[in-house]
């Protein structure tokens, strides 16, 4: 009898006797993850939505004010400016990051010597935190711009391109890895067929390779677009919103301040009464990023091909 117990067969695993209790207790095994998701995401998110309709000093001490915060957020000139600036930044960075990442990935899948070393080197900047990167690059830029008597904090243009260069440097490696995976999955027989049919390099790239790596393009554009919109650490460390345009009436426009930094500065820089406004801005920010992300996913998904 004892001996029989020790032998296992697949029938035992698939038997209803065993599967039913597992199925019943499934929710129990899901609990830790669900709890973490609720504590770490769902609850703060709902609480944050709620607070955007309140005036508050700490999150537990609030007063309902309705849509007043949203009205203030829309009326805020700096918020509108940041929106435009962020959109410009996101579009530029998406194009550049993906072009560069694809080019590098394409080059590194042609079997040149030292491919693995190059991939590692390109990927490495991605492992450094945003704040550290921001400070490192501010030193590099100022080392160069200093020779011309200016600084990244002095000129809006330099601030913009500085951020773009920083983001490319950080993200190209990451996107490259995704593209490399996509390129390696392009079926050999298709390439061979193209070759036999006499397709040149450009035709192979545009007719075979790109349609086949469309899933990678979808995910990379999604990631770089949302990263561009959500950028915070690098913005804070590299320019902090400087330079400002000082208006004669004492107001100022922070010319390199992106949306996330604008929200942060509203929350902490302007006294406790503006916290509700900052929260309303944050909700608007979420809706915006989610919308843009979804539209972009939809539009690139449509271009994916089934192999």
């Amino acid at each position: 009898m004892k001996k029989k117990k020790k032998t296992y067969s697949t029938a035992a695993v698939t038997s209803r006797l065993l599967r039913r209790p597992i199925r019943r207790a499934g929710w129990f095994f899901l609990m830790p993850m669900v709890a973490a998701f609720c504590i770490g995401f769902v609850w703060p998110f709902l609480h944050g939505m709620f607070l955007s309709f309140c005036q508050f000093k700490t999150t537990s001490n609030w007063k309902w004010v309705g849509f007043e915060n949203y009205a203030k957020a829309f009326a805020d000139q700096s918020f509108r400016y940041s929106f435009g600036y962020t959109a410009l930044f996101a579009i530029t960075s998406v194009i550049l990051i993906n072009l560069l990442a694809f080019t590098v990935a394409y080059a590194l899948t042609q079997g040149i010597k030292g491919t693995n070393l190059f991939r590692t080197v390109f990927f490495m900047p991605n492992l450094i935190g945003g704040i550290v990167l921001g400070y490192i690059w501010s030193m590099i830029f100022d080392g160069i711009l200093g020779a011309y008597g200016t600084s990244i904090l002095m000129d809006t243009r330099w601030g913009f391109w500085g951020l773009i260069i920083l983001m490319c440097w950080q993200q190209v490696g990451y996107m490259m890895i995704i593209y490399v995976a996509g390129l390696q999955a392009v079926p050999e027989d298709m390439m061979e067929a193209a070759k036999i049919d006499g397709a040149n390099g450009w035709q192979t790239l545009t007719r075979i390779t790109i349609p086949n790596v469309m899933p990678s393009i979808t995910i990379c554009t999604f990631l770089s677009l949302t990263n561009g919109f959500k950028l915070f650490d690098q913005n804070l460390a590299l320019t902090g919103g400087l330079p400002y345009i000082i208006n004669p009436d004492g107001t100022s426009v922070h010319t390199t301040e992106m949306l996330a930094l604008n929200i942060y500065n509203t929350f902490y820089g302007q006294g406790a009464n503006s916290r509700g406004t900052a929260q309303a801005k944050a909700v608007l920010f979420f809706i915006l990023v989610a919308l843009i992300g979804l539209i972009q996913l939809k539009s690139t998904r449509d271009k994916e091909v089934q192999q």
């Binding site: 200016t150 600084s151 002095m154 902090g240 330079p243 100022s252 500065n265 902490y268 820089g269 006294g271």
Partner: peptide
Amino acid sequence: QPNVDAYRAAAVAAMNTYNA
């Protein structure tokens, strides 16, 4: 100084322009 952080940040930005 009212809204001290925002107030000083604007002053620093203006002084940077002036110093340049």
